[in-house]
Design a protein around this nucleic acid. Structure first.
Lengths: 129, 129
DNA sequence: ATAACTTCTGTAGCTACTACAGGATCAAGA
DNA sequence: TCTTGATCCTGTAGTAGCTACAGAAGTTAT
């Protein structure tokens, strides 16, 4: 059994974040030692590591929670997992497209910077109707 | 002079957002009519439109505020504008790269979905060290 | 014994809005 | 004139997912 600092080190999840996950019911409340300190089992730490990976993949926390539950329920509901992952991938692609649009717009907006204009061409464009 | 609803329609900035910008000092406090209602000049609405464009380009609100100030100060400080825009473009590109990484990881993670596995391959990967 | 570290609870801050609640005011039609 | 519906006001709380305290208490090392 490990104290929260050690659990944090082993899982890569910050201490405050671990407590936050507990408050939010993402992970079950851990045992407490006689001095009231949280004590984490290897299993608990595995859960945190799982969540960390989901978050690193960009899954929303609620999805991460769902995946964790699916992972622990014996049924291995592959269909639900697939659906979540596909929706998330779709959202990631949509964000990429949006950001590419932004990038192109920014390039165009700053195209005439530094060509010795009297007034700033970017500001003029932002001001124009 | 226009009421806030009309200013919202003409600028594309939501009513609540306009009041929020006022609270935050992003735009100056508008005049008030005798009935205490906010009244916006064409100039005020121009400011809101300017901010809307900056936000649509993904600039953080503080950057939008800065750009607005630069736009209204007579100096047309093109260098500062350029610096802001370049930094923002850099950040946008970084986000695109990060999301592409995520996308690739997600594709790999779900590669073996639906191939008749007994246990879910994605969950196994998330559980593995 | 003392210092430095860790943990505890509880609360506030971050970004940029958005969504109320509860009340006042206004414009237009019957 | 009365009523109905739209608009406006202030103030507060909620969103996502942490992060950063404050202030207290316990633990570990020298």
């Amino acid at each position: 059994m490990f104290a929260i600092g050690e659990a944090s080190r082993q899982s890569g999840v910050g201490i405050e974040t671990i407590r936050y996950y507990e408050r939010e019911g993402i992970v079950p409340k851990p045992e407490r030692a006689s001095n009231n300190r949280r004590m984490y089992s290897a299993n608990d730490i595995g859960r945190l590591r799982f969540l960390k990976k989901c978050r690193d993949l960009g899954f929303p926390l609620t999805d991460a929670k769902t995946l964790l539950i699916l992972s622990e329920g014996g049924s291995e509901d592959c269909q639900s997992v697939k659906k979540l992952a596909e929706l998330h991938t779709f959202n990631v692609r949509a964000k990429i497209d949006e950001l590419k649009r932004l990038e192109a717009a920014l390039i165009e907006l700053t195209a005439n910077c530094d060509t010795g204009n009297v007034s700033c061409p970017m500001l003029s464009k932002l001001r124009s109707v």
